[in-house]
Design a protein around this nucleic acid. Sequence first.
DNA 1: CGAAGCCTTGATAGCGGTCAATGTTTGTGG
DNA 2: CCACAAACATTGACCGCTATCAAGGCTTCG
Lengths: 288, 288
Amino acid sequence: MDGSTPISFMPSCPAVPAGAPIACDRCPTRAASLCRLLDRRDLERLFPHGPRVQLCRAGTMLFRQGEPVQSVFILKSGWIATYKLFENGQRQIIRFALPGDLLGFEGSEAAGMTCSAEAITDVALCRIRHSLFFRVCTASPQLAMSYAGTLTREVLSAWNHLGAVGQQPALGRVANLLLDLHRRVTALEALPDSAPHGVHDGIRDGIMDDIAVPAVHLPISQIHIADATGLTSVHVCRTLKQMRAMDLLDFQKGRLVLLDPDRLAEIAQLDPDRPVGALPPPAPWAVA
Amino acid sequence: MDGSTPISFMPSCPAVPAGAPIACDRCPTRAASLCRLLDRRDLERLFPHGPRVQLCRAGTMLFRQGEPVQSVFILKSGWIATYKLFENGQRQIIRFALPGDLLGFEGSEAAGMTCSAEAITDVALCRIRHSLFFRVCTASPQLAMSYAGTLTREVLSAWNHLGAVGQQPALGRVANLLLDLHRRVTALEALPDSAPHGVHDGIRDGIMDDIAVPAVHLPISQIHIADATGLTSVHVCRTLKQMRAMDLLDFQKGRLVLLDPDRLAEIAQLDPDRPVGALPPPAPWAVA
DNA sequence: CGAAGCCTTGATAGCGGTCAATGTTTGTGG
DNA sequence: CCACAAACATTGACCGCTATCAAGGCTTCG
């Protein structure tokens, strides 16, 4: 591969013009511990010609259920949904990937990819061939354990999701999902050099609280919520209406405002905080 | 720690009398790739005084939701269920751990354990302190990647489970679960030196098939199935009855017979095969 | 301005939950 | 060996949460 050759593996994915390569310590978001742990040697092995970023438009399929395993992706900006399709035409959204998250490990040699991935917004991501990624991981225990940490967080998240979908009524499921997304978006925005993905308005509401209630932007529709929670969009609409009436939260046009976080947390029964960026200590070079 | 000191971290867990320590390459089951990859040096670090096995009675809690993270367990024999409890008293079984499976990574420093684990049958397991486990993994990239492989399989399993619970009706959920367990038990029994955990009867049924239909033993109740699938035990009972009437499968008193695997697979829409023991190439010493 | 996609709302129906009673199995102690 | 209790399985009656169907409104975009 030549450093000046633009990568283009999908028609609707215009490659970034191969100019100044975007180094990973200039990563717009550092949510993924991977980003924190990749040292220069790792980087050189992963990106022999400098890391490059691909851009994809909203709606692009990054991979499809059943395809052979090929690449892992580090999401740099934008949102991606992974989901399973069923024969009756329904789909289950498995997870929402946010900037810093890792994708492409949702398969095995034997079975191929078990999910499809679709860009919800325009996205930018780094693509790494599986073979290369695993070779580098195998050579760097720190990186391997960082990868393991990422996987662990995905498992915990999946189990939380499973608990909500399996045992909670509509109200709890929606609360669980929105609270989780809110937490993640907020954590992203708190990162030092993050691009402003969310809208902070500092709205004050009727609640007798001395702190402003911030609104965050979630680029998802009620249909996404429905497919993620195992409900129908019609019922999600009714549930959101109910939550508004209960002064729990307000979600309209992608604007989420938590009106009563405490009561919401009780309803959602979300796992306690999993700090997004705090788990592994940052590598020495990343501290500077 | 002295090699002759029996480990006893739970009242109802009689420690194995410290006799000949059970080496990991004598592992009764080798489902976990971890077991395959642990080389002698790893073993010595993990078990400075020789690996030992603890026995626990059915019903023992191995860890509880909210507890601080302490130990990792490699299950040697028996079944364990991990689950989340909700405030309304319901529980969601997250997964069934079978011999060879790894437990104890279901938490983080920040949040503690996010699940509880209870022995369904009498079990035997190796306990490893977290700090030690991660130290050894960090020192051995192969082991770290093996750990990552285990985590990946857990993620894929969780996502499959999530898809079933989120989008499939009762029939599909039960089919999905039983098919998955059947596959795993069968894979275990196929291992060279596995203890006979299942009952092979080679029953021939009305189906015009030239191979006998084997029955496997699943040590779970309809209540377990209900808690895992997000149904009630009453409805699981009805669903099993229906499946019997449809000549799909027969599950009674822990005896599972698949009568029509093809139709079942279609109903379950389970992910394609994830070979349990086949993923990582066995370490050289394990081949002998 | 028309089309497409999403949101909203109402009416109706069904899957699966709840409640309750009974049967079956297993284990324990007399 | 029997009595009894506990846990699980089974069945029926009834109900509620959520799906389905359908129609109309709102935005966005070409």
